[in-house]
Design a protein around this nucleic acid. Structure first.
Lengths: 336, 336
DNA sequence: TTGAAAGCGATACCAA
DNA sequence: TTGGTATCGCTTTCAA
């Protein structure tokens, strides 16, 4: 409840000086700053964010739009963003598009137009032309993490190349019967992720002269349960069975491993599994994977936006984040 | 960029009327409201949150303090909170205490004292006396989800009773060699959760006349990987082995199931497993569990605070959320 | 280095 | 039902 005037009175200076002293601005004598800080501490004063936001035009908050919180990738990007914002004293406003009762439009109304945030990070979101127009018109710095998006800066990985590399890893081990556990595309999300990964898988097969078997391309929702079901279904079929699976995410890969166990198969002796992500459980599962680093991708996105807000750096361009193969125990040459 | 005055000019009314019309307040003729809305739409006007926050004293945002995002319980509570806030046009400001670079103090500074939020929901946080004092002094409605906390309202479950019931379920099946996978307490979090669950386990054993075996009380960090390790360690020991395990969380229970598989044991034939939560993967794992409903707990917390802010309801008291046994395939009578 | 005062953009009270 | 206007609490020129 304490206002700036009370601090000013207590310290015997003007409110202008209090403001400067407390924000660490230059041109304040050390003596003055000390007594202002003392007065503020004594009175328990902290500036109201609404007031300073209104006066300065900066909200010191950043919006993060996510499709859901239940996938490891999203949660981890958020933690990366958060780690940077925290250090910069920015608040994180979370807009969750997923779940029960989603309404995408309001996000725009609330964060962008209401100016509750200074910048926006969107995860895997595919903006409509209209949405991009609104974003642009507000001058709100924006960046997308996890997928290329038309007309917006983004941080992404080489989706196609990563999928290709994963598949090639299996091929190099000697596999030729390789299934692909595809992550299903969701309305409103970047289409590039599933599409490009599928493409990389197909390219790798084609280059190795392996014919594509559409019945071995199965779908999950990027999570463990659905992948486990899809994989169980595949393994339960009569006829030839793949000796390896490439999954679009580690959560799906782990689902595949569980499905293999359910079917009485050993990994990697009976079937090899490779994923994408380097999930926190990947090590526990001995999962070979294409390691991307969502935490760092989130942190990088936040840093880029902060730099831009501080005017430290000219508007930076899109970034392609490197991915590396993390070889563990879930992949091996096929049995004869 | 459009301000309220421009809308007022466009609609040919005063700013006061624009404000009333747009917020849906009474005492505005339908004709006026319509033309104001038209003008606002035409100009793309949306009120600035800083300005209205300053003028009205309401920020239309709620803070949510979480220990981390990587546990299912926390993420799910957040989604429950979010679903309610969204419907009420409130924004969710996320304060993550966990992870790299945590600093708890700043949370208070930023959200509570800076008045960025109208209310606060804390998950499993144990506030210090000082923190509670600060909270009280601001009149910021606060509620804790997931654990009783001294001097603050909370939503919790009967930790002790739930643990007892879970253990009793195993005993009723005929088990007498029952291990307990305890979730480790973390600095700053409610101590009640691990303590009470341990107590319930011990009570159930005592009532059944089963002596406690301290070497069968093992610890994990509420997650799968650590529980899998702890359980593998237990199963790898020479000598007698438990026929059942009660885990403090489903994530740990799933870790135990995986450890059992790693050890070549079948669940439930060789070892029964029961958890607490009803995790989204519980069904996939056939896990028997004490189902609490974090989504609803979060939603309820948000609703209670909104009611309080709206003055609809007198300050509500703490709530004890009901937990039910969800029996699946991971528990069965012990083999002879 | 410090202070005075003019905003920032709404809301809300009081009149009309 | 509407309009005028003081006010919210801080930031930021501009002078001193």
């Amino acid at each position: 409840m304490t206002g700036i005037d009370e601090v000013a009175r207590e310290a015997g200076v003007s409110t202008a000086t209090v403001s400067r002293a407390l924000r660490g601005l230059p041109n304040v004598s050390e003596h003055t700053r000390a007594s202002v800080q003392a007065a503020a501490a004594k009175l328990g004063y902290v500036a109201s964010s609404s007031a300073s936001g209104l006066a300065s035009g900066r909200t010191m908050a950043m919006g993060v739009v996510v499709p859901s919180l239940s996938l490891w990738f999203y949660a981890t990007v958020i933690e990366g963003v958060d780690s940077v914002l925290r250090a910069a004293s920015y608040d994180l406003i979370l807009f969750n598009l997923g779940g029960r009762g989603a309404d995408r439009e309001r996000v725009f109304h609330r964060t962008i137009l209401r100016k509750r945030t200074d910048a926006l990070i969107a995860l895997c979101i595919d903006f409509t032309a209209d949405e991009r127009h609104q974003l642009a018109s507000t001058g709100h710095p924006t960046i997308v993490v996890g997928g290329a998006v038309r007309g917006l800066r983004h941080i992404d990985i080489d989706e196609c190349g990563v999928a290709k590399q994963a598949t090639e890893h299996l091929i190099a081990l000697g596999h030729r019967k390789i299934a692909h556990l595809v992550g299903s595309w969701q309305m409103g999300l970047t289409r590039q992720v599933p599409v490009q990964r599928r493409k990389g898988y197909e390219q790798a097969l084609a280059q190795a002269g392996i014919p594509l078997r559409p019945d071995w391309v199965i779908t999950g929702h990027f999570n463990m349960a659905s992948a486990r079901r899809a994989m169980s279904d595949l393994l339960g079929r009569t006829g030839e069975r793949p000796t390896a699976v490439f999954a679009d995410s580690d959560e799906m890969a782990m689902g595949a491993i569980l499905a293999a166990h359910d079917a009485g198969l050993r990994v990697p002796q009976d079937i090899s599994v490779i994923g994408i992500d380097d999930h926190e459980l990947a090590e526990s599962f001995g999962l070979t994977t294409m390691a991307q680093n969502p935490f760092e991708q989130g942190a990088l996105a936040a840093r880029m936006l902060l730099d831009e807000l501080h005017g430290t750096v000219a508007r930076r361009r899109s970034v392609r984040y490197p991915v590396t193969l993390a070889e563990r125990a879930s992949t091996a040459p096929p049995a004869h």
